[in-house]
Amino acid sequence: MPQQPPPDPTREAVPHAGSATLVRAAHAEVVALAAGSAFHLLADGDGSHGGSAFGVNRLTLTEGADGARPHCHGRSSELFYGLGGAAQFLLGDHLTTVAAGDLLIIPPGLPHAFGAAPGSTADLLVVMAPAVERFGYFRHLGRIAAGQDTFDALLTEQERYDVHFTDATGWRRTRSRTH
């Protein structure tokens, strides 16, 4: 019989709800990014926390902050729901803005990048399905922001995290024109 992982004190079983998982806001791990931005890690696809079918995080970006350089996912769709502020997205070569209440779903294979819209903060709920292990990726980004690691070290982990970086020239040019 497979051994069960030890209970996670930051996750609660919901009585009479089967294998539902509840993550209290106070128990979410927060990964600090540059200039006050942060990831709030909610559910991972690594088999822990009940083996969630969804990878879920909340991303808060300070005014004008970049969220992710151009990349795509080979296996997962990515859903962004605007909780507050506005985020600017580059989808292929199309630029769009997602505001509070807007929903954007990016299919596998579509290169995309995003950041807080010029003059705005952004608060996004981000859901990946099917889930892949990503908490390690977000923690790595936190170490990069803190100067404890390099972006180049992350490049060897692209397949593991299903984050495949693409050319950032157009995104940098777009962001420099809008800031």
Rank of each mutant, 00 (worst) to 15 (best):
G85F: 12
S77R: 13
L91C: 04
A87F: 12
T96N: 08
D149A: 15
L79M: 08
Y81P: 10
L91E: 05
G115L: 01
V132M: 15
F80S: 02
P108K: 08
P111C: 14
L91N: 02
A87R: 05
P118N: 09
H94K: 07
V126Q: 14
A131F: 11
I106K: 04
R139V: 03
D123G: 02
T156W: 10
G119A: 09
F151W: 15
L110H: 04
S77T: 06
R160I: 05
I105T: 13
S76I: 03
D149Y: 02
F135S: 02
G142Y: 04
S76W: 11
L83N: 12
L79F: 04
G84L: 06
P130C: 10
H112E: 06
G92C: 05
T150Y: 00
A113M: 03
I105K: 10
P118R: 07
R143Y: 03
F114G: 06
R134L: 15
V126N: 08
A99E: 15
H112M: 10
R143I: 00
G74Q: 13
G136S: 05
G109A: 11
Y161C: 03
D93L: 02
L124D: 02
A100F: 00
F151A: 11
L155P: 03
D162L: 02
L90Y: 02
V127Q: 05
R75G: 09
I106H: 06
R134F: 14
I144Y: 01
A87G: 03
L83Y: 13
L95S: 13
A86E: 15
A100N: 04
R134A: 14
E157I: 00
E78K: 14
G147P: 04
D93G: 07
A129P: 07
L110N: 08
H140P: 08
A145F: 01
F89E: 05
R160C: 05
D152N: 02
A117M: 10
R160T: 11
T121I: 15
L125F: 06
A116R: 03
L155F: 01
G119V: 09
A117N: 09
F89K: 00
L124E: 06
A113Y: 01
A117Q: 12
L83D: 06
R134H: 13
L104H: 11
L83V: 09
D162K: 00
S120T: 04
G119N: 11
G92H: 05
F114S: 09
L141R: 14
G142V: 09
A113E: 08
Y161M: 01
L110V: 14
G147Q: 00
I105Q: 10
G142E: 06
L155R: 08
F80V: 06
L124W: 08
A122L: 09
A153T: 07
L79D: 05
V127G: 14
Y81A: 10
I144E: 07
D149E: 11
R75E: 13
F135R: 04
A146Y: 01
L103A: 15
R139M: 04
Y81W: 13
A145L: 01
H94Y: 08
G115T: 13
R160H: 14
G74W: 12
G115I: 08
L103N: 01
G109N: 02
A86W: 11
L103P: 09
A146T: 09
A117I: 12
L141F: 11
Q148L: 12
Q148E: 15
L141M: 12
L90S: 03
